[in-house]
Design a binder for these strands. Structure first.
Lengths: 194, 194
DNA sequence: CGCGACGTTGATTTGCCTCAACGATTGTGG
DNA sequence: CCACAATCGTTGAGGCAAATCAACGTCGCG
């Protein structure tokens, strides 16, 4: 078997499969181990895959015209990661994906996802709902950026990723919040002194 | 027939249906005419429907703890609108939806969407892809808010909604961009003088 | 140890906000 | 159809949050 016994149960936790289905689905995933620092995807590459994160931590980031990095999201246990805009529209990546803490991923190609969905229509519901959740979390993020100060956004961030601190450098958090490392440092100081 | 002959072809433009399917689908939609100023949805209400905008213009906005409004999105011809976060999670609305230019909508309930998807699985693909597009557009918006100045975001906005100016007040645009009306006014002045 | 990566602190600048006043435009009732 | 009010947009003065620039701690690791 190409992947762990347990992984299917983990990825598709709310769905049960027959043993033929299980075999079929498992054959489409490939296990990948990454070490910290590895770049999984670079801007301008073609995006053929998405990845389920079993453990570790990755981030997707965008490099703007001035060379500055902006983190779109972190992915930890049970999240999926890819440059979805490029993945869905079959265009080249504008995002980069970096492993920031040694990770175990399960990779699946777009072609194989499309096949799986055809063969097992329940999976389409799964992927639709996954997208709905991701959409909702992006909506929250937009509303936060419209209505909150940097300090408030940092507090929100910490409560939505309570245990992520260990894996993530402050300059990554700053680039996620849309502020500089200096500003984040001052915010953190303020928060500890109160 | 409860709705226009042409509406199905408009909503699901890439899918073709048998005449029985057409009848079935059409029976689930309800045509709604709104005049400017009407509030279609208020925060705290239960979100049971989503709406296809055939013509006119609506906006979804969030009212923060200080009473300030923040526009999440505008919906014009061929867009869908709802408080999707509440809709998907079956929680109460946090957004409001307002008609800002006389509009024709087609309303469909969540219950009916679920039925349609069961009866006509091709529609699940349609709704999944619709969500993927919405997701991608939110991603763009987040990257813009992380990497661009107010002026740059305004320029981006104008090019993504080229013909929307007529229907939209500047204070709505400002609340979409996350700036004040005064700042937008100054930005507009700068742009005409160059 | 010594070097590089990361975080902190201070001084200064800047983009956008706030508050206030004043035009311009739109809508409405007499 | 005009007069007036309400709504919307503009302009100016001053303030503040966060950026920038520069220097200096601190930590981890070869």
């Amino acid at each position: 078997m190409s992947i762990d016994d347990s992984i299917l149960a983990e990825v598709f936790k709310d769905i049960s499969f027959s043993s033929e289905e299980t075999t079929l689905i498992e054959s489409k995933f490939e296990k990948i181990e990454l070490t910290k620092g590895i770049i999984l995807l670079r801007a301008d590459e073609t995006v053929l895959n998405q990845y389920y994160v079993q453990k570790g931590c990755l981030r997707t980031y965008y490099i703007d015209s001035k060379g500055k990095e902006h983190t779109l999201q972190f992915a930890i246990n049970d999240w999926w990661i890819s440059d979805y805009t490029a993945y869905f529209s079959s265009t080249k990546a504008i995002m980069n994906i970096e492993c920031i803490q040694d990770a175990t991923l399960y990779k699946i190609s777009k072609k194989n996802i499309d096949r799986l969905i055809q063969e097992t229509p329940r999976l389409e519901t799964f992927f639709r709902k996954k997208m709905e959740k991701a959409f909702a979390s992006f909506q929250k993020r937009i509303l936060a950026s419209l209505s909150q100060s940097a300090k408030e956004r940092y507090i929100t961030f910490r409560s939505s990723y309570p245990n992520i601190d260990q894996s993530i450098k402050n300059y990554h958090v700053a680039s996620y919040l849309g502020i500089t490392t200096e500003s984040l440092s001052r915010i953190r100081k303020e928060l500890t002194h109160s």
